[in-house]
Computed example of a mutant assay.
Amino acid sequence: MDETAHARAAFSEGIGDIAPEALRERLEGVLKSASMTPGALTVVTATTLDGSVELDTAARRGAGVQMSYEGLRLSRDLIHSNPWSGGDRNEGDMNAIAAEVLVARGFEYLAHTGVAMDVVDAVRHFGRDQTIRETHDAPAELDRRLEADFVRIAVRAGADVALESVPEPIDTVADELAEELGIDPLPETETALGGVAERISTAVASPDRTAAGSRSSST
């Protein structure tokens, strides 16, 4: 099974009805250049925890995570480059619209799921971090949180698909992967997914990690 291909296909399907054509082509360009780590990580988590999970469902959830991330990432690029000040204003306008569409479609895919509030929190983190970025002593550290947040959300989203909850051992793995993979740019899936299925399987099978109980994904 190719988790990346499934996540990419669901993303492509999710933007297939966007109009006008110029905007859809811009979104297709975002997809083409994207590291599909968030979407693929969602799929591999879900299928590891439940081998019978429907791939279309897991991939759609992964696409929602990926679209939300790509929209915020594109917004960050615009904030940093500020094309409206001496740059290509038309290009900036198109990318701003694309960012808004991606975030909105991502929210649509993740609404009424166990990670909906996780994404809301990530947007709040993003807005606060970018507001204070210029005066912060370590702006790169602030920017890094976007990637870390969405690696964590991806794992939680996969667990939510498979289990309708996020057991504490999976949250621990999510935190570990967020620390390891949460860099800009995100690592490609070939690197990011290495050993992840085994880590998830080990986490849920470990008495030491499962003894602490579970935490609902809705909190």
Rank of each mutant, 00 (worst) to 15 (best):
F107A: 04
T131W: 12
E91S: 12
L142H: 08
E134P: 07
E141Y: 14
G114L: 05
A122Y: 01
D143G: 15
H125E: 12
A104N: 06
N90C: 14
V101N: 03
E100G: 10
V119M: 00
G87T: 04
A116I: 00
G127T: 15
N95S: 13
D93E: 13
E91C: 06
A96D: 13
G87E: 04
W84E: 06
R124W: 11
G86R: 05
D93K: 09
Y109K: 03
V123L: 09
D137A: 10
D93P: 02
V120A: 06
A140D: 10
D129A: 13
G106H: 01
G106R: 00
H136M: 13
H125T: 12
E91P: 05
S85C: 06
A104L: 07
N90D: 09
T131C: 11
Y109T: 03
V101F: 04
D143R: 14
G106L: 00
N90T: 15
N95G: 02
A111F: 03
D121T: 08
D88W: 10
D143N: 10
G114M: 05
V115W: 01
T135I: 15
A99P: 06
A99T: 07
M117P: 02
V103L: 09
D88P: 08
M117W: 10
T113V: 06
A122M: 02
H125I: 04
V101K: 04
T131Y: 15
D118H: 05
D137C: 13
V123W: 07
V115Q: 01
G87R: 02
H136P: 10
V115L: 01
E108G: 06
I132K: 11
T131E: 14
Q130C: 12
V101G: 03
I97Y: 10
D88K: 10
N90P: 11
E134W: 15
W84P: 00
W84N: 05
T135Y: 14
R124C: 11
M94R: 13
E91T: 11
D118K: 01
M94Q: 13
D129C: 06
Y109I: 02
V123M: 09
V119T: 01
D88C: 09
F107D: 05
D88M: 07
V123K: 07
A104C: 03
V103D: 03
A111E: 06
E108A: 07
E108N: 04
G106C: 01
D93L: 11
R105C: 00
Q130N: 11
D121I: 05
G87P: 03
A111G: 05
A138E: 11
M94F: 08
Y109D: 05
V120W: 01
R124G: 10
A116Q: 07
E141F: 11
M117R: 13
G86L: 05
M94P: 06
I132C: 07
A96I: 04
